[in-house]
Design a binder for these strands. Structure first.
Length: 113
DNA sequence: CATCTGACGACCG
DNA sequence: GCGGTCGCCAGAT
């Protein structure tokens, strides 16, 4: 399937920064297709250097089943992302576009790794 | 070909 | 503020 654009976009996410499925879907012109993006992640070939763990739900919550969620949390922590009940998108959130509501511009203070 | 499901998101009660 | 429902796209059965 042609999920290449999705993978490429995810790979573009800087270390220590995260994004949402909806954000990716919008960047790929897939309105409402956030689920499709999630499906793409599930079908993602492992070992491709794709930082899939940097993709979260719009609420900054991990939308993965337990086994994967734990792994994702660990990976994010390794990158210096503060993991609470929900990840602070205003701090670690990252947009593919130049600027968006907050994100890169309004970010509070990313915890120094 | 019809229907359900899913690593989502927004709306409504 | 929270929980439930509907809508979105793609794949599987």
């Amino acid at each position: 399937m042609s999920w290449d654009p999705v993978y490429r976009l995810v790979k573009k996410i800087p270390r220590g920064r995260v994004t949402t499925y909806g954000e990716v879907a919008r960047a790929l012109r897939l309105p409402g297709g956030a689920r499709a993006v999630g499906y793409a992640m599930a079908a993602m070939p492992s070992g491709r250097g794709i930082p899939w763990h940097r993709v979260l739900g719009a609420d900054g919550r991990i939308r993965l089943p337990e086994p994967y969620a734990a792994k994702q949390r660990r990976l994010l922590q390794t990158e210096g992302v503060a993991l609470g009940t929900t990840i602070d998108m205003e701090v670690y959130g990252w947009s593919f576009r130049k600027s968006k509501t907050g994100r890169t511009a309004k970010r509070k203070r990313a915890k120094p790794h």
